[in-house]
């Protein structure tokens, strides 16, 4: 099955999150070339980062604060292999070092002027940040396709419990009822939900990003090459899941066969 064996063998359970580990911040597909975005991580101290992709495709992450006068770098723009701050145009390379100060164009900035950087790695369709440059742990492999990311006002621990009890659609046309899902693999950063009936089988890989206390970003991947209408169904499932997680305590959706409808 897609990557399932790889998953089991790749040390998925060995990841150690917290300030030493990897945190997923965006699906690769959602950070195009020259893309710039903000990522907040609730780590041992709250982090506010800018994540960006250069023209050549390289991803980098800095503290979201320009060393010049404190402007948020996530408002900046990418030119070539550099991120420019929107305020005075100071340019930074992928290593964080300042390369050009427009107000003093003839001066080469010293290497000591630069943005604070974080280890940033793109792996298996997800972009990850780590604060520990020395011994970053292995990342999980799924071989999936990015579906979407979703911000939920709920703690990660609650979300994991709710995901264990959810049902996910297996077809786009709604002909079959959503099937109960179970968690078939789980570690500190991610889990894999599988839903199986006689007719079909599906896996979702969900990566967790603690944004602030009580707010979690879910980055969701599916098996590759699913039909578009199923992808749309899954996207809607994600929204319903978010709604119930934010509004209904620990109650979960289930399919009421006799009534032919979704019931809380």
């Amino acid at each position: 099955m897609y990557g399932l064996l790889k998953l089991m063998n790749a040390g998925l359970t060995e990841n150690d999150q917290g300030s030493d580990g990897w945190v997923p911040v965006v699906l690769s597909a959602d950070l195009p070339v020259a893309g710039v975005m903000r990522a907040q991580i609730d780590a041992t101290q709250p982090l506010d980062l800018v994540v960006w992709r250069s023209r050549s495709g390289q991803v980098s992450a800095f503290d979201n604060r320009c060393p010049h006068r404190g402007m948020r770098l996530s408002f900046g723009f990418v030119r070539g292999e550099r991120l420019s701050c929107i305020y005075h145009g100071w340019q930074y390379g992928e290593d964080g070092a300042c390369r050009h100060i427009p107000a003093h164009p003839d001066m080469t900035p010293p290497a000591s002027i630069g943005a604070n950087t974080y280890l940033c790695r793109e792996y298996d369709g997800v972009i990850w940040i780590s604060q520990n440059a020395d011994n970053p742990p292995d990342l999980p492999t799924f071989g999936g396709q990015g579906l979407r990311s979703l911000s939920v006002n709920r703690d990660e621990a609650d979300l994991r419990k709710l995901l264990a009890e959810t049902c996910i659609p297996l077809s786009g046309a709604g002909e079959t009822a959503p099937a109960e899902a179970s968690i078939i693999a789980e570690n500190q950063t991610s889990l894999v939900l599988e839903s199986t009936t006689e007719a079909a089988s599906l896996q979702l890989m969900i990566h967790f990003q603690k944004v602030t206390p009580g707010k979690t970003m879910l980055h969701i991947q599916t098996n590759p090459d699913l039909p578009v209408d199923l992808r749309i169904s899954l996207s809607r499932w994600a929204e319903r899941f978010r709604w119930s997680a934010e509004n209904m305590g620990t109650m979960v959706n289930s399919w009421d066969a006799s009534a032919g409808e979704m019931r809380p």
């Binding site: 060393p67 404190g70 402007m71 408002f75 929107i86 107000a103 003093h104």
Partner: peptide, 25 residues
């Protein structure tokens, strides 16, 4: 205003330790 509302810190620092003012400033 888009700049001002996204500068850190919101208060004006009187100690520029976390900034790098140059001659243009």
């Amino acid at each position: 205003r888009s700049i001002l509302e996204n500068q850190i810190p919101r208060l004006l620092p009187l100690d520029p330790k976390m900034e790098i003012p140059t001659r243009a400033d």
